[in-house]
Amino acid sequence: MMTLLQQLPPECIRIVIAAAVVIGFVFANATVMGYLERKLAGRFQRRLGPMEVGFHGLLQMPVDGLKLIGKQLTEPNNVGGIVFYLSPLIAMTPVALPFLVIPFSPHLQVIDLDVGLLFIIAMISFNTIAVFLGGWSSNNNYSMLGAMRSVAQNISYEIPILLSVLSIVLITNSFSLKTIVLEQSRFWFVLVQPVAFLIFFIAGIAETNRAPFDLPEAESELTAGFHTEYSGIAFSMFMIAEYTYIFINCALATVLFFGGWHGIPLPFGEYSSCIWFLMKTYLLMFVIVWCRWTFPRVRFDQLMNFSWKYLIPFSMVNLLLTAIVVKL
């Protein structure tokens, strides 16, 4: 056994460790976000939120997680068999991949791909398929309607995301996330590209199906949208995927617009850059939760018009102006 371990190249062991860390982080992030969301929701609505389990309800989310794991998976009549169970897996699996290219600190990055930005955007596109398959195979009209709304929404909001990201690529001449962060050592790009940041942030909220754009799972109209028929761990897999996509979105915003790991030196040695990165990312996530509990849900035609008539034209004009300024 030991000789076999010694024969393995160090890369293999590193891969196993990195995979374990990423999966652990995905679950920890979902737990923390779930707790923060419920607690903040309580505060925004002038109530306390979870208080009973543990100190100020700190253990509420782990306990809920255990409950969800222990629950029976119910299967309604005439669901689409394999597809029904495949859908939460497709939602859950690709969320770990964007962590490969996110630069947490100058040294904490798995690979510095020269197409890192495209890599993340390509991985995010898996989520749409999962939502679709789940909604369709549930054999439920609410799920179906939620899935159909999700397709329209995701396709419309992917365009402003790509266009707003391109203006950063024009400035830095690179798709590599590390290069983009290094370029921001003097100033953050949010100062020169505020319009691109606003468009990216709004479209990101819509892309992750969060309120005020959570039409695919609008509770008052569609019970729970595409995951109405899912119970137990299958439901929580959708929720974990959603929280991870929010994290990835905010991490991407941090990398592109808020200078990534750059910040005033903290007394933590080489960990301080990583701490800065996580602090910025979770601040953005706080803003997303804040938006969710502050703004009312938009109507579906408003949602579509907002993307096609405002976000896309504005991001195109912004891209053109950036191109002109960069070439001058």
Partner: peptide, 27 residues
């Protein structure tokens, strides 16, 4: 490979799924 995923899975795959979704029930 990223382009393959973005275009074929993210665009063409989704359009195909949408087409099937509207026309057929799961079973």
């Amino acid at each position: 490979s990223m382009m393959q995923i973005l275009i074929y899975l993210g665009a063409i795959g989704i359009v195909l799924v949408f087409g099937v979704m509207v026309g057929y029930t799961p079973r």
